[in-house]
């Protein structure tokens, strides 16, 4: 079995330890004897989405997102097809905002990919905090760190979780992130996947199921992952 991970524009979208998300998916495949290949795409590269099993869209500064957004128009159609065909996507921070229709900033509108029905508006102050969210579909909370000026509204889509500590999508509705088909968008970094191996395995399982029709993931020893996760849960929601 083999998983191919496409990392979009790591030169521009690489804030907040995005490399850790890639590393986590790669290692958790390898530890199970599943081959994992990471393909990095630069801004002008052509992307064959049919060759990818997981797409990672990371975070960048507003300025860098502006540079990326012009290029995104050229891949929008193929990317949309990939998503509608249940392709797996993990989009973090800036990448999450780019999933939507637009991000309105004081410097102008950053057009998004319109892959998911959501939009983002700049707000003040920046929402900066450790964050803990809960989703019944996952066996324990999802933890991370958020740092975003944008307020995201997901228009009735399913959220990734309910906020038990921190701000979430917009600091108002106590929701964080979005889940649409096999797409997860979230403001959580820290990075997201190493401390949330259940989310990582969810993505891997979806990718394997789509590719091979079945998805049995051998359990791994996640004691250290859980300890790091529990530390945050305990410190911010139980004290």
């Amino acid at each position: 079995m083999k998983i191919t991970i496409g990392h979009l524009y790591p030169d521009l979208l690489n804030l907040y330890g995005d490399r850790g998300n890639i590393q986590c998916m790669k290692k958790r495949c390898e530890w199970r004897g599943i081959e994992a290949e990471v393909k990095e795409f630069q801004l002008t590269d052509a992307i064959d989405f049919s060759s990818l099993d997981i797409v990672l869209l990371g975070g960048g500064s507003d300025r860098e997102q502006m540079l990326v957004c012009n290029q995104l128009k050229t891949i929008q159609k193929d990317f949309k097809e990939y998503v509608e065909d249940n392709g797996v996507v993990i989009a973090v921070c800036g990448g999450y905002q780019l999933l939507g229709h637009y991000y309105d900033t004081s410097e102008g509108r950053i057009e998004g990919l319109s892959l998911v029905d959501l939009y983002t508006e700049q707000g003040s102050p920046r929402l900066i905090s450790n964050i803990v969210i809960e989703n019944e579909a996952f066996p324990y909370p999802i933890v991370g760190f958020e740092n975003h000026g944008g307020r995201t509204f997901i228009n009735g889509n399913k959220a990734l979780g309910k906020v038990s500590f921190g701000y979430g999508n917009n600091g108002q509705d106590k929701e964080e992130g979005v889940m649409y088909k096999n797409v997860i968008g979230t403001y959580l970094h820290g990075p997201l996947l190493p401390k949330n191996p259940h989310v990582c395995d969810h993505l891997l399982a979806r990718a394997l199921a789509k590719k091979y029709g079945r998805a049995e993931l051998e359990p791994l020893d996640d004691a250290q992952e859980k300890e790091a996760n529990e530390y945050i849960v305990h410190r911010f929601t139980k004290s």
Binding site: N14, Y16, G17, D18, R19, G20, Q23, I128, N130, F145, N147, H189, G190, P191, P194
Partner: peptide, 9 residues
């Protein structure tokens, strides 16, 4: 800095 995600960089 309360954000330690930089460890992964």
């Amino acid at each position: 800095g309360t954000d330690i995600s930089w460890l992964w960089d």
